[in-house]
Amino acid sequence: MVSMETVFSAVALVAAPFAGGLLMGVDRKITARMQSRMGPPVLQPFYDVLKLWGKSPVITSRLQPILAFGYLGFSFLSVALLLFGGDLLSIVFTAALAEVCIVTVSMSAKSPYSYLGGRRELFCMLSTEPLMILSALSIYIVTRSFIVENVLTFEEPLLPLLPGAFIVTGIVLLIEMRKSPFDVSASSHAHQEIVRGVYTELSGYTMALVEVGHWIRTVLVLSIASIFWAPNILVGWGLALALLFMVILADNAFPRLSWQRMVKTSWALGFALIAANVLLLVVTGGATI
């Protein structure tokens, strides 16, 4: 007997890429409006991916297709873990595995741009991973569990308790979505000194796979953000979308910073916020270490 929840999770898993694509489309539309432009249709990301799928690919190394599939697969897996109530740490690690795939792809290519992009992607990982783990830890401190199901059934919303961790999730989203000021490793448009960064060597269907993987990862981070108002999913997703809007706003309000600055800022800000948050919890008696 399959429970309702399992069915729901399965449907959500299938819907994840589509939701991600749609979000990207909305993102591009809002960005365009912020730049006084009309912007592309909301379905534009789907057109792009379909088109890429139909192009003849230029495969520069044999690893490329495998790793592109790996990127998509691990991204999917991490969302699946989240939906089926896995634990937060394993989600973070699976997501990191996907990242490793894309870094390997770009570092294995001969193009210096791709290589530099891969290097910078590593620094992105270096910025995001500790923050994700710290967020998970702070959630653990409050709920005494890494298991998503337990977090979801915690008696009160997490946001009032963990505002710092929520903002940190926002920073992660910023880096993850490759938005200014942290769009160091790649950019959606050609407005980057290293051209397309990690994407430089991808083409045709491998690019399409990576693009879809990217959507899924965006959904993943947003879902984690939505946990902060569990178990009410609607409010949670409302929060997540508000976060997305803030990220788009930041994208249009900042230039790109260098990767050194990115690592420094994200670490300083992330550690400080989480530490302040946990300290506050301890002081107010919300949690014990």
Partner: peptide, 16 residues
Amino acid sequence: FADSIGFESLFMHIWR
């Protein structure tokens, strides 16, 4: 220049 430092919205507005 705004574009070269990744400030796309500024680029768009100046060109407007």
